[in-house]
Design a protein around this nucleic acid. Structure first.
Lengths: 209, 209
DNA sequence: GTCTATAGGGTGATAGAC
DNA sequence: GTCTATCACCCTATAGAC
């Protein structure tokens, strides 16, 4: 339960933006949901765009910081360890509390949200993390061309973004055969798949690791 | 250059929905772009929601039909062949003509667009294709549990959705080191990565295919 | 810091002439 | 089939009282 106005606005914005989309969420419905006055949004944040940015930063910055901590704590990491450092902070943020689903959708839609304004923000938000992890993977896989590393790291991000952004669709299509109730199991599925993908040989035959 | 009103509306809707988002695109800006009268949208389609559905179906149904054709043409397909049948029709739709980017973003955002209305449509649109490909992969990988197959097929979709939905972001972050100018090369990257991921062993060690 | 009130404009949908 | 005109409503942002 949030206490002050600013936090209540952020929490409601996160929930509504992620479930209905940003453009579909009016400041009126937002302030009604947060039980604050309409003008409070424009007082605490300057505009709706700035509010979007604040919602994003609050969740994604700590995740990226944790990713860096985990990665630098490893000396000469394996591919599996690098992926664990990348995925785990995000999966755990999704775990934490009942607002997890909203955070998941927020992260899941981060990369493909339309609009030039947001695209620039996301790029700035992710650039450092992306570069650091790309370099780490390159060191672990010295034989793989740089362009291939870049494509494959984007594929790893795509796996996560889709797992987080299409939860309802995935659950619905699975008809109970898979579920989101065990985050550690999902993490394991993601790492196993992405790990093999990153280490793939060009002609998709199997070689010694 | 489209000739009749209905097609002009669909083309403009595809372009604007995919570049600005659905909620952010007003029927007024749409009809202005299409050079048709505002009332024409409600005459040819009944509502904005129905227009969204029409835009989706026009592009995705032929792709899914082609996927089925390619898959059934293969007898006992390998994982690489199954993935080619799944990815190629979508990648080639992105290739065809200058509207390719709009189609790509449309497909890329399909799975994570907010709103219950759309989610149900997407599920209905993809259910048959998903089930058929899941069964085909299961036959090619008899030792892998069903739940794992389902997760991994979703990961394969995530790879494609992110590659199509985050083009600007990916190009921007790559700073020229990768590009979208060679669709066959992208297809190869996707298939190589996803193929290794699908065939991964639980403990991410390497086994004979 | 938080409120009310309102400015100024955009929205999807439709009725009815041609 | 295509137009104009319009309805009824929602939107963000801000000025100014408390």
């Amino acid at each position: 339960m949030p206490t002050d106005t600013k936090e209540r606005i952020l929490d409601s914005a996160e929930l509504l933006f992620s479930s209905q989309g940003i453009a579909n969420t009016s400041l009126r419905s937002l302030t009604e949901h947060a039980q604050v006055n309409l003008a409070a949004v424009n007082y605490h944040f300057q505009s709706k765009d700035a509010l979007v940015q604040a919602v994003l930063f609050r969740r994604v910055n700590p995740i990226n910081q944790r990713r860096m901590e985990l990665l630098t704590a490893l000396g000469q990491p394996s591919i599996g360890q690098i992926l664990d450092a990348f995925y785990r902070p995000a999966v755990e943020a999704v775990l934490a509390g009942p607002e997890g689903r909203a955070v998941a959708r927020l992260i899941g839609r981060l990369y493909s949200e339309p609009g030039d304004l947001l695209a620039g923000q996301v790029r700035a938000l992710m650039a450092d993390t992306f570069r650091t992890f790309a370099e780490s993977i390159q060191r672990a896989l010295p034989g793989v061309p740089q362009a291939t590393i870049i494509w494959r790291l984007h594929f790893c991000i795509g796996i996560m973004a889709h797992t987080f952004g299409a939860m309802e669709l995935i659950e619905g299509m699975a008809r109970g055969r898979i579920a989101y109730d065990d985050p550690e199991a999902i993490l394991r599925q993601m790492i196993t798949f992405a790990s093999a993908g990153l280490r793939a040989e060009g002609e998709s035959t199997c070689a010694a690791s």
